[in-house]
Write a protein that binds this DNA or RNA. Structure first.
Lengths: 246, 246
DNA sequence: AAGTGGTCTAGACCACTTT
DNA sequence: AAGTGGTCTAGACCACTTC
């Protein structure tokens, strides 16, 4: 049978990318939730009326983008922040000695407030829209090592309260996806060296002026939608930010 | 024709990975140099006696790893550090405002010396082996912004002299690949915040104690071979280290 | 027109996991 | 044994670049 053409965008888009977009739409609509198995390649091929190889290529790309995870013999699954595999993808601070571990979190402040102009701009909101503000200290092996400030769109995190996060050792992004259906896909970070001010120095139990890593993050969900603005101040006396250039 | 089996490693390795290894071997042997076009998929398929699709899958992975670059209608080319595309893959310091640019370099020190224990360990040399030591200042828009110290295996960089690098605006890794056949593939970085000591502060024209980003890099060539140890101290008052988490 | 990579199909068979 | 993803093939045709 000759190649199916279907509705082709004015600028040529191959079939497998259209299939890919359909799968992403299903992910976004939570037809399959994080951790779920999606239909087999043959089933999807039947649903979309294309060959298995075309579905395969679409899934290949989604797996490369960490939206899906393939497990031979088992099936293809929706990636989840609850898994060890994904655990350290967004947590780049590692101890100088020993294995990476997940930190303990202490909430310093939690409130809903009106978005300042800068926050609104980055999160694609209107100035004055509701925003969740969260300030935490992260402790690695009982040692306070990070001071974090987060801004989240209020509309996406309706039931979020301080109690719900309290004393959590659970990954924050895992909570976001299971409790609020907000899936973090990608993040951009800008890193600088700064001196600790008095307030931060006290929280981290170091002298004022101690050099800290300042990590400004914007995290995105499906469709490049910004859903988190975060500033982290990292104490790097026993830890470092690890990165790989490919 | 049934599937060719060939010499199969004890743990199963698919054909396309064996093909991939053969292509990497040719790259390593400089059969095709950076910037060169490699043979077409059909030619390689004939050479290796496999189908075009199998060669294609091997090349797909090599392109994903940035060892090869595909150009539709033209051919497949060996990736080169001389291209704009690759330019900023290993240069993560970007100005807060405006477009990234390539810095001017000033050499502060250049000499050959015996490898200290730590340097030898990281570069996989013997203690006392010859090592090239290079210290530079990088200037963005006339502003000194980085102090860099590099250690390179002496054996790989035989003809390297200070004159050859002098006042170079050319990318260092481009020089390495064209002049010495050493191709940088991947690098690991560990980032910390530190305070500028007197010597560095003078070079960067800032007060002693100014917070700086300390970036420790180990760069690798083919086969995970370490070929560079580098420590950079970045002034982040008008620049930042950019990163994307996927 | 010819040559390159890019897409799509259909079918066979392999490797891994579960029943 | 059945179901899943993984590999490999052979052939057709499309899109892009160059001659």
């Amino acid at each position: 049978m000759p190649t199916a053409a279907r509705d082709r965008a004015p600028t040529f888009s191959p079939l497998y990318r259209q299939i890919k977009a359909l799968i992403v739409a299903s992910l976004e609509a939570l037809e399959w939730r994080p951790g779920d198995m999606i239909p087999s390649e043959m089933e999807l091929a039947a649903r979309f009326k294309v060959s298995q190889g075309t579905v395969r290529k679409a899934i290949d790309e989604l797996a490369a983008e960490n939206l899906l995870v393939r497990r031979q013999g088992k099936g293809t699954f929706v990636a989840s922040h609850g898994e060890a595999r994904t655990q350290f993808r967004f947590l780049r601070l590692a101890p100088d000695e020993g294995e990476p571990s997940y930190p303990e979190s202490r909430i310093i402040e939690f409130r809903r407030q009106r978005a300042a102009a800068e926050v609104a701009r980055v999160l694609d909101l209107k100035s004055g829209d509701s925003v969740v503000y969260l300030k935490r200290v992260l402790l690695f092996a009982k040692r306070p090592s990070v001071v974090d400030e987060l801004h989240l769109p209020g509309g996406l995190f309706r039931g979020l309260t301080a109690e719900r996060l309290a004393e959590g050792r659970a990954p924050l992004y895992g909570t976001f996806e299971t409790d609020f259906g907000v899936k973090m896909i990608r993040a951009d970070e800008k890193i600088r060296a700064v001196a600790a001010d008095a307030a931060v120095a006290q929280l981290l139990e170091v002298p004022t002026g101690t050099p800290l890593l300042q990590v400004d993050r914007v995290a995105f969900s499906y469709g490049e939608k910004p859903v988190e603005l975060r500033r982290g101040l990292y104490l790097t006396q026993h830890h470092h930010y690890r990165n790989t250039l490919n």
